[in-house]
Amino acid sequence: MTGTVELGVEDQAPQPVPLNAVFATDFVQILVPVTTADTMREVAAAVAHHAEGKRVRAQPYEKVVFHHGRRLPPEMTVAEAGIQPLEHVRVEYDVPEGAQ
Rank of each mutant, 00 (worst) to 15 (best):
V9I: 08
E87D: 13
G3I: 13
G82P: 06
V5Y: 10
A13L: 15
T4D: 04
G3K: 13
Q29C: 04
P74L: 08
A45F: 09
A81L: 07
L19Q: 05
E87N: 07
R55I: 04
A99E: 09
D26K: 01
A46C: 05
N20I: 11
Q12G: 03
V47F: 03
Q100N: 12
H68I: 00
T77P: 14
N20E: 00
D94Y: 06
F23W: 01
A79H: 06
L86E: 13
R57N: 05
T36P: 00
E87K: 09
L19K: 01
D94V: 05
A51R: 11
T77A: 05
G53N: 04
E10N: 05
T4I: 11
P14G: 06
V34D: 00
T35E: 07
R70G: 02
V78Q: 07
V34M: 04
Y61Q: 03
K54G: 04
R70D: 04
G98E: 07
V5A: 11
H88Y: 14
F66V: 00
E42G: 00
V47T: 05
A21P: 01
Q59S: 03
R71A: 08
T25E: 12
V56I: 12
V91F: 03
E75P: 01
Y93G: 01
V89R: 00
E42W: 02
E87R: 14
E52I: 07
Q15E: 15
L31C: 10
E80G: 06
P96V: 11
G98N: 08
E52Y: 03
T77G: 07
A99N: 06
V43P: 08
R41S: 13
E10A: 13
A37K: 11
M1F: 12
H68P: 03
P96K: 11
D38S: 14
P33Y: 13
G8A: 10
G82T: 10
V43K: 01
E87C: 11
R90G: 02
A79W: 03
R71L: 14
A13M: 10
P16V: 13
P85M: 05
A24W: 10
E75I: 09
E92D: 14
A21K: 02
T2N: 09
D11W: 00
K54I: 15
E10W: 10
P14H: 05
L7W: 09
A45H: 12
V64H: 08
V64Y: 00
H49R: 14
V9G: 02
D26F: 02
V28S: 03
